[in-house]
Design a protein around this nucleic acid. Sequence first.
DNA 1: ATGAAAGCGCTAACAT
DNA 2: ATGTTAGCGCTTTCAT
Lengths: 290, 290
Amino acid sequence: MSKSRNRRPTIIDVAERAGVSKSTAARALTGSSNITEETRAKVVKAAAAVGYERNHLAVGMRSGRSGMLGLVIPDITNPFWADVARGAQDRATKSGASLLVFSSDWDPEAEAQHLRTLRQARVDGAIINPVADNFDDLDRFGLPFVFIGSSAERFADVSSVGSDITQAVRLGLDHLVSKGHPAPSLILGPKSRLARARFLRAVHEHCVERDIDPAILAVEDGEYTVEGGRVAMRRLLERPHVGHVSVFAANDMMALGAMMAVREAGLDCPRDVSILGFDGIPSGNSPGRG
Amino acid sequence: MSKSRNRRPTIIDVAERAGVSKSTAARALTGSSNITEETRAKVVKAAAAVGYERNHLAVGMRSGRSGMLGLVIPDITNPFWADVARGAQDRATKSGASLLVFSSDWDPEAEAQHLRTLRQARVDGAIINPVADNFDDLDRFGLPFVFIGSSAERFADVSSVGSDITQAVRLGLDHLVSKGHPAPSLILGPKSRLARARFLRAVHEHCVERDIDPAILAVEDGEYTVEGGRVAMRRLLERPHVGHVSVFAANDMMALGAMMAVREAGLDCPRDVSILGFDGIPSGNSPGRG
DNA sequence: ATGAAAGCGCTAACAT
DNA sequence: ATGTTAGCGCTTTCAT
């Protein structure tokens, strides 16, 4: 008549089974020193016998490290962010950590809510694509974090992994130009997003470098989604134009939407229109704090 | 000189600030009864003042509920699974829970590892797309779980959300036939995957129903990826064929790969080839245990 | 309505 | 090398 069979075994169960104290059991299991190989074997066997598995909540409480990381991105459904998530996931797994994933939908309130949750979960750190741009009041999230995304570089005093927009624009425009399209149209994100301004600035700088008048480039805005790209492309096609149209979209989703619009318009995509989508080139920033 | 400013405030800090005991503070914060509205207000104000945020690790330890759920899918990078993840995420958030996400890459070892991690994190439950098919020895994962995916229905005694393959095949084949393609070719997953057999069986059953000889359908296998679909399609195109080719792919990724192969072959996709990808129709199974 | 105290499972001093 | 004890932050009896 021992305790209920349905309770998960604790380190005490292991210790009793092995005939040692719980600290000895703990030492054996954590691979600490000052343990006879003999007792260690005994404890390990006992642990396996009872099916013991360390309670990470308890460990986290004692040690102050939960072994969990947070990821806050706009939308896991967007292939770009799915890739990011996958990368973070693999890296976390390799370090023996787990990843809590949240989608913010570019909603500041949702973001705030997720960050609160992350703090309460006592994650050891977070990877964040910040939706808001004004962190003058709150330049600390209350937990160790790293920024990711194109607006990341703006904050020189925080570690970040962003997209090298300048480089992306250079490659993208040069590519289109080399294909014989001197004045590509642009499909950008909504005016409210900082990334849009940065993209546009990069384009202007590049044009100056290449002796192109930036004013001749047609620009359409849209949400950073397939649908946004589709609508923007539709508007672009309604504009007066002659011959081949070439387009540089701010990300792959929008480029895909643009292709859909082209098809809907009865045009042939490779022949009548060239579309290039760019999700950015990774670039790092590590101010080395701490 | 009080304690370090860098320590996260605990409920004790709140209690001291409010001039009550920690149990009273806890009661006020958890919204329990037997509390004067006056004291509650006092405590809430104190909590806000010190920036208190509940430590979920401690709560989880006390209560036995961590407030976390686990999701184990083959690959978050696959749009189908990204959608699933997004759905699970939103649902979890709505219930005030967090989601730990893992990709198994169809690797049984990785799956086992992730499940172990989930158990150690003491998640309250898990959503799993099982990679292995033989759970005769281990029909319990050691935690509350729900299966998801096409192999889910195989296990009548566990709750699951799967794909209604029969229905998917019926719709898909009928669609292609109605478009004038009486004998579509099939691009299926690897032979090792149970889902492949189920798909094929559904096709055969449907053919019998429609008085078609299943033997005339060409079949190619491949990994459940874009690349897998591309390679399979390439092989399909190498086969002797006349006129229009129509293809039914086991999922959207493979269909996309197939389209790439078509394009690489210099063919026109809408004109020379029809491609249909199917990621399944949701279907539920709830044996109602407990 | 409030306070005192026990205890969740674990690890890290501090003994021995 | 091993055992004993305190305590992480919280909720929950049990008193009052």
